[in-house]
Design a protein around this nucleic acid. Structure first.
Lengths: 331, 331
DNA sequence: TTTCTGTTTGCTACCGGGTGCAAACGGGTG
DNA sequence: CACCCGTTTGCACCCGGTAGCAAACAGAAA
């Protein structure tokens, strides 16, 4: 049933050799107008189109890029995936979406991507532990890797990220200017170096503004429920007088979860009793029901850069891009 | 640099022929314990693993499934993608995510997927116009296609969907029971046959309950902004006495956008002035800020079924599964 | 007519593995 | 020791293209 026409068959039909058929499908190849016409006619009749698999094998390039994702709870992934696939497709590349989870970890995924001969791997919001990687890399031959929207912990693996230091400086300056003085910071995965780095910057900039103490909240993952739970446990254990006046959350999902909890369970007002700041500028942050102050990552530019590196137009190196503070009613 | 070891090289290192090497990597192949051990040792030393590209070419099976997506505005796509990739990976399959947009339409995408020799194509929430397809299909040889979360308009292409008729019956019964009598229906893409069908069912069941008139609102796409705009234009043009008492929106995103607009721009209460119903049970519908009554699709089952068909365990045929009405405070 | 040069075409070798058959092997039996 | 049979191994050929060289075929210049 699913037998496809091959170049050889088209060649026979057109009365030429299979190499001439291939030339007809190779832009810029040396071929006479006349034979090209004949070939294309025969090809159309037989419904022939070149087999990219065979081509990939011969050229040693699949034009496929593996995209590793491990956190589907953050709806912000979706616009990133949209832009990423669009940009890759514009380069003639295609994304192989790989779900990293407990059944299929980074090592499996990388091995698999490697066996599939992908041209590159994008670690989108995930990262290898570097020890894990060094085990694998000794046998030279993993495809080139790039980290998107997260710091690279691995020597020689470039990352394209939003400048967290700058972002946190802008946020802290904004909050300080608005008069907040008792800040808190909620992380989603306390073990993550990225998370620690952000909290560090946050604390640092407050210190520069004369505020030494930062309340620390931690959710155990990046979900609305976890954000709600973290803020609940904090508010239950903290007397009203000791509470933070502004809570910075590591991403919007935590922030939205926290806002719900603050308002409906504790009956507190935002921003009068507690202000809230998120990170990502997820679409719903702008809704009047939340109106969350947040920070927008320069998604288009980030993806343009990472795809440029993969396509070989840009030097592969870590790039840090500036985002935008989006001030709304939650602060 | 990126030279990988081949079966031949491993064979030389292990002192056997390349076919013996291949047998060592083929489960169930006939090979002596002793030589298998030798081969695996040599393979480990050389960091060899089989080239799936070459294998795909030889076996005529890539174990890749193309997933076509054209609407990234609906955050509900994300959990679907998560479950889908997970289930596919559990079958040893992998998802190639293809973004259908104005630069890369269905026909391009199908042609591309076909050239890549994918084992199947999943139309996730999108659909071909059947004329378009018949043009392509005459040359037999497109990969098997399946439609997910949307009706198939194409003869012979099975779909896995949530039972819309049943869903709308449950919803209408619930609304009628709650005492609503002036229903409205908001579609996201009035031209879509799926949308028309749903509205039809909606009207039909109301008629069975003695309500003949259904207000009709239409957004021009499935986004919160479009939902807000549609409800704004409706409320502006409709005197309070003539307004609907309940508005059913084709999906949650429209509904959430509509809720924002109803409350903050018109100062109306939900559900007292206007009740709202959505569809999908997107995570945020449960948040106290919205608490939207909606209908949850049986995501896990749908995906289990479609992957089962692709893997060949299930007969490929259109399957309709029952979802769950989730009643919250918006009705 | 011969020579030269540029275009067009065909061919060999190859990418890295898979298939099915035939030969080699090895141990038990008569 | 010959024979038989089941296991293990090697081989020719195939999957559908690509690369680069060499032959064939122009048409123009000598």
């Amino acid at each position: 049933m699913r037998k496809r026409a091959t170049a050889k068959e088209v060649a026979d039909a057109a009365g030429v050799s299979k190499w001439t058929v291939i030339r007809a499908f190779t832009p810029g190849a040396s071929i006479a107008e006349e034979s090209k016409r004949k070939v294309l006619e025969a090809a159309a009749a037989l419904n022939y189109s070149p087999n990219l698999l065979a081509r990939s094998l011969a050229t040693n390039s699949t034009r496929q890029v593996a995209v590793f994702v491990d956190d589907f709870a953050n709806p912000q992934k979706l616009p990133f995936l949209e832009t990423l696939t669009e940009r890759l497709q514009a380069e003639g590349l295609v994304a192989v979406l790989i779900n990293i989870n407990t059944h299929f970890d980074h090592v499996h995924a990388l091995l698999h991507a490697d066996q599939r001969q992908v041209d590159a791997v994008i670690l989108f919001g995930t990262a290898f532990r570097s020890e894990t990687l060094s085990d694998l890399q000794l046998g030279r031959g993993t495809p080139p890797m790039f980290v998107l929207a997260r710091d690279s912990q691995i020597e020689g693996v470039p990352a394209v990220v939003c400048d967290a230091e700058l972002a946190l400086r802008e946020i802290v300056d904004h909050l300080h200017e608005r008069g907040y003085r008792r800040p808190g910071f909620m992380t989603g995965a306390p073990a993550l170096s990225t998370a620690l780095r952000r909290r560090h910057h946050f604390a640092d900039f407050w210190k520069q503004n004369g505020v030494d103490e930062i309340a620390s909240l931690s959710a155990d993952k990046y979900s609305a429920g976890a954000g709600a739970e973290a803020v609940r446990s904090y508010l239950e254990q903290t007397a009203p007088a000791d509470r933070v006046d502004v809570l910075m959350c590591e991403n919007d999902i935590l922030a939205l979860g926290a806002m719900d909890e603050i308002r409906s369970r504790f009956g507190l007002r935002i921003p009068e009793d507690i202000a809230v700041v998120g990170f990502d500028n997820y679409e719903f942050c702008g809704s009047p029901a939340y109106s969350l102050t947040t920070y927008e990552q320069p998604r288009q530019e980030m993806i343009q850069v990472i795809v440029g590196m993969i396509a070989g137009r840009l030097e592969p190196e870590t790039v840090t891009l500036q985002g935008t503070l989006v001030v709304r009613n939650s602060t």
